[in-house]
């Protein structure tokens, strides 16, 4: 690797041997050009462009404007969107806890444990989310009876579990990478102080992985949130299901595009700050490490 770097400095070097990298100065500029306000303005302009013909069409029997209809449906849709957010937070919580455990098992000194953890991680990391979702719906019974108590498993809980599986797998990989990136000197100095392996992991290594995993973790959450409309396919009353219901109730063709755009804007407004914050974290920590 170092040889390649040195060769690259010589005249007539091969540019392809350089690691691909954005210019450090390019990112802040792009950031300034494509900030939240520019994006919002662009989307509003697009929305106005799409909605405008609707105002011109005075032939429709329903004389309510599209904006009025959207506002009318907003409380219902907001309830659905809140459900998406709830599912995303719960899946993230379950997936994170399981993923941290699985990631720690991936670096276990006991080889069979390491292999099993690796296999589980790879299996769920390379499965389509929708298929996992279907599997959970089919495999988990709608209720479990333990003695006299019956624990119900409504669809949305099954869906939450289904979405938490890929989160777990990605988290497991992030954790493995972060643990392995901690210098071995940390292990050795803790070992020489008498810490057991488990104590080193809990007190020394895991706290140091937080900073390293945080940007990927936030990014994963944004991706997960954007994937939550998948649950509408299995009949859960999320924002997508309710949007379709609203559209069929209104029965207006000109409403299709504005309403879906409206929902897209919600996701954008919820997810964009997360990914923007992620980039800020990444840049800040890149300097430190």
């Amino acid at each position: 690797m170092s040889m390649i770097r040195q060769d690259a400095k010589a005249p007539g070097h091969l540019a392809v041997l350089h690691p691909m990298r954005l210019h450090a100065s390019a990112l802040p500029l792009a950031e300034r050009m494509f900030n939240l306000w520019t994006f919002t303005a662009l989307i509003l302009a697009l929305a106005a462009f799409l909605i405008a013909p609707a105002f011109a069409q005075d032939a429709t029997p329903d004389d309510r404007s599209i904006v009025a209809i959207l506002l009318e449906w907003t409380p219902t849709l907001a309830g659905g969107f809140a459900f998406n957010v709830l599912i995303s937070i719960l899946s993230m919580a379950i997936g994170t806890v399981l993923g941290v455990i699985l990631g720690v098992l991936q670096v276990s000194p006991i080889s069979p444990i390491r292999s099993i953890a690796w296999l589980i991680t790879q299996f769920f990391r390379n499965s389509p989310w929708l298929v996992l979702l279907f599997y959970c719906i089919l495999l988990i019974p709608f209720q479990i009876e333990i003695g006299d108590t019956t624990i119900p498993f409504p669809g949305w809980i099954k869906a939450t579990i289904g979405l938490s599986l890929p989160v777990m797998a990605y988290m497991s990989e992030y954790m493995r990478g972060a643990i392995l990136s901690i210098p071995t000197g940390q292990w050795e100095s803790a070992e020489s102080l008498g810490f057991s392996r488990r104590q080193i992991m809990v007190n020394v290594i895991l706290p140091q992985t937080v900073k390293r995993v945080l940007p990927s973790w936030m990014n994963l959450y944004a991706v997960l949130t954007m994937a939550t409309p998948l649950v509408s396919i299995i009949g859960i009353s999320d924002v997508m299901t309710l949007t379709r219901a609203a559209l069929s109730a209104e029965g207006r063709v000109d409403l299709l595009i504005p309403m879906y755009l409206y929902i897209l804007c919600w996701f954008f407004i919820y997810c964009y700050p997360i990914s923007a914050a992620t980039r800020r974290f990444e840049r800040r920590f890149a300097v430190n490490t």
Binding site: P183, G185, S192, Q208
Partner: peptide
């Protein structure tokens, strides 16, 4: 036995 290393290896957090 106590040990001190070349790279200090303090816990940075």
């Amino acid at each position: 036995v106590g040990m001190v290393f070349q790279q200090y290896n303090l816990f940075p957090h």
